[in-house]
Design a binder for these strands. Structure first.
Lengths: 125, 125
DNA sequence: CTTATATTTAACCAGTAGGTTATTTAACTA
DNA sequence: TAGTTAAATAACCTACTGGTTAAATATAAG
C-alpha cells in the first residue's frame, strides 16, 4: 500500500476505528462485540478491522467460529515519535518567539526570483 | 467536515504533507518553495496546503503575491495525547503480560449467546 | 496599461474509502 | 445431516482523494 507511518495515521483518521482500538485496551474480543456500539453493519466493521490489521494495529486469532481481535499498539510508537518532533511548536508563545527570531535572523528567506523582496511586516496580518 | 482528531490524523496520513510540515519547522515560506522538493504540480501542492489549513496545522499570511505558510502545531497536541494513551500497550512484553492476566481474570469475556463457551487456549495460535 | 510572477480555482479523471445488502465460508449444535 | 451462529467476501453505490491541465485572480514591475 504505502509507508508504515501513512497507514498508521490513515487508520487512526476514523472515529469508528479509534473507538475499536479503545475497546481493545480492555482486552481481546469478538467482531460481534466490537460492532455492538455502532449503527453500521457487520461487513462495515469487518472492513474497519481489515484496515486496522493491515496497519498492524490489531491481530486476529481463531477460536472456533470467533475471530478474537487484540490490540497491537507497536506502530503507534513511531507515530508518536513523529508527532513529538513538533513539541516545541505546540505553544503559540513559542511560535511567536520563533517568528521574532526569524525577523532578526533571515536565514531561511522565501525563494524570490525577479521581483523585489517585499518588506517584512512588523505586525501580524 | 468531521471531528478535529480525525482531520488531524487524516492530514498526517500523507508523506507529502508531513514533509511540508517538516519544512515549515525551519520557518515560514512560500508555496513555490514548499513545492520545490516534489515532482507534482503547483495545484497539487496547493491542495495539500488546503488540507493542512483546514486541519489547523498551518496558517497563511499575505505578502504581496506570496502566501507564506507557517506551522501551527497546536492540533498535534491532542493527536499526541490520544496516542499516548496507548503507551502501556506498545511493548509486546506488556501485551503478553496482559494476555496472561486476562487468562486469570476473565473480567471482559466475549459476548456469546447460545453456543457454548470455547476453552481458552494456553498457547498462542 | 501591459506583462510577469505567485497562487488559486475550475473541470476533469482514476483510484480508494466507507457504507450497503446478499451470499459464502467456517465451526459448533442437535 | 440439517440448522445456527460468527465472520468474511462479493458486488455495488456514492463521495472523497490526489493528481492532472487550463484558466482566473492578485499583486508588482515597467
Amino acid at each position: 500500500m504505502q509507508d508504515q507511518l501513512s497507514s498508521t495515521f490513515a487508520a487512526l483518521a476514523d472515529p469508528t476505528r479509534r473507538a475499536i482500538l479503545a475497546r481493545l485496551t480492555l482486552g481481546e474480543t469478538s467482531v460481534t462485540e466490537l460492532a455492538g456500539p455502532f449503527k453500521m453493519s457487520m461487513p462495515a466493521v469487518s472492513k474497519h478491522l481489515k484496515v486496522l490489521e493491515r496497519a498492524g494495529l490489531i491481530s486476529r486469532g481463531r477460536e472456533a467460529q470467533w475471530r478474537p481481535c487484540r490490540l497491537d499498539a507497536g506502530p503507534l510508537k513511531d507515530a508518536s515519535s513523529w508527532i513529538e518532533e513538533y513539541r516545541r511548536f505546540w505553544s503559540a508563545h513559542i511560535d511567536a518567539l520563533e517568528r521574532h527570531l526569524d525577523r532578526m535572523d533571515q536565514s531561511t528567506p522565501m525563494k524570490r526570483k525577479k521581483t523585489t523582496r517585499p518588506k517584512r511586516r512588523t505586525t501580524k496580518e
